[in-house]
Simulated assay, not measured.
Amino acid sequence: MTNATEFFNARQHGVLMNLNTAMPCKVLAYDETKRIAKIEPLFMVKEAGEDPSKLAPIENVPVLFQKYRVNGSEVQNYVPVLEPTDTVLAVFCQRAIDEAMKGNNIYPGTARMFDVHDAVIVGVF
């Protein structure tokens, strides 16, 4: 393998190791009325020559709810019940979700991509 190939393989690996897509997390706290949680990522990180370390908790993570109409009834919202120590799946949105959470169209010009601050809880394991 050439030095250039090794360089680009290492660079690609580094980029992918820092790309957040989805991750199991432990619920630390949950506000059911606001549907936001504080979660602890369960994956650890390791730098060369260092011991593995935990990732920092993530605050104010929105929790998705479901809307259902059962047997032709009125539409009802079903809000999840999360308890501390529940294991959930958090997904990390492609771009910043601050304005999208308000229902606004956004121009994705932000440099924030796949950031832990754009996590959304989609379910419980």
Rank of each mutant, 00 (worst) to 15 (best):
M1T: 03
M1S: 05
N3M: 11
N3I: 09
N3Q: 12
A4N: 14
N9D: 12
N9Y: 11
Q12Y: 05
H13L: 09
G14Q: 11
G14Y: 12
V15F: 15
V15R: 13
V15H: 13
L16V: 08
L16G: 01
L16N: 13
M17S: 10
A22F: 08
A22N: 07
M23L: 14
P24Y: 11
C25L: 11
K26T: 11
K26E: 12
V27T: 08
L28R: 02
L28V: 05
Y30L: 08
T33G: 13
T33W: 03
T33S: 15
A37M: 08
K38G: 04
P41Y: 07
P41A: 09
M44Y: 04
M44E: 11
V45H: 08
V45Y: 08
V45W: 06
E47L: 09
E47W: 12
A48I: 14
G49A: 06
G49D: 13
E50W: 09
D51T: 12
D51W: 04
P52D: 03
S53P: 01
S53K: 13
K54S: 04
P57Y: 01
P57I: 02
I58F: 01
I58K: 00
E59V: 00
E59R: 02
P62H: 07
V63P: 00
L64F: 09
F65L: 09
F65W: 04
F65R: 12
Y68H: 10
R69P: 03
E74V: 06
E74I: 10
Q76W: 09
Y78E: 07
P80G: 06
P80A: 12
V81H: 10
V81R: 10
V81C: 14
V81Q: 15
L82D: 01
E83P: 01
P84I: 14
D86H: 12
L89T: 07
A90C: 14
A90I: 13
Q94H: 09
R95M: 07
R95T: 15
I97Y: 08
I97K: 01
E99G: 04
K102G: 02
G103L: 13
G103Y: 06
G103W: 10
N105Y: 14
N105W: 15
G109H: 12
R112Y: 10
D115F: 01
D118T: 07
A119N: 08
A119S: 00
I121C: 02
V122T: 10
V122A: 05
V124R: 14
V124H: 07
F125D: 10
F125N: 13
F125E: 05
